[in-house]
């Protein structure tokens, strides 16, 4: 019993000394991926892709980049779920605000066009 405890204890002690310790290779891979994804999102503009495909691609590359930065560079992937949820769930409420303001902006443009014609 005491032997197993001693055996299992060593990684914990090591973690205490070194904190978040991951191979350098992982960071280099993520760095490379971020470069590639940024190049892709730049190409969306450079190639002049328009319409729904443009918006989908922009959002896709944006979310992938944001996910990589938060998960690996900011070490969120190795934190306990309590911290992950406490930090990552509240920003979702911003989407509610977005929905409110989309509706508000639609109304504003409607009144502007209805009462002032096409000009401001």
């Amino acid at each position: 019993m005491s032997e197993t405890t001693a055996h299992a204890q060593s990684p914990t002690v090591q973690a205490q000394e070194h904190g978040q310790q991951h191979p350098i290779r992982l960071y280099l891979v993520v760095w490379g991926l971020l470069f590639v994804l940024s190049a892709f999102s730049y190409m969306v503009d450079y190639l002049g892709i328009q319409g729904h495909l443009r918006w989908t691609l922009i959002l896709l590359f944006m979310m992938l980049k944001a996910g990589l930065i938060v998960a690996v560079f900011m070490h969120m992937a190795w934190e306990r779920l309590a911290l992950v949820y406490a930090i990552l769930l509240p920003p979702l409420l911003v989407l509610v605000f977005v929905a409110l303001m989309v509706s508000e902006a639609d109304y504003t443009i409607f009144t502007r066009l209805a009462f002032f014609g096409a000009g401001p």
């Binding site: 911003v94 989309v102 504003t108 443009i109 401001p120």
Partner: peptide
Amino acid sequence: IAYMTARMSTP
């Protein structure tokens, strides 16, 4: 969001 609102609501 302010930017989105401004851009969506201008004719």
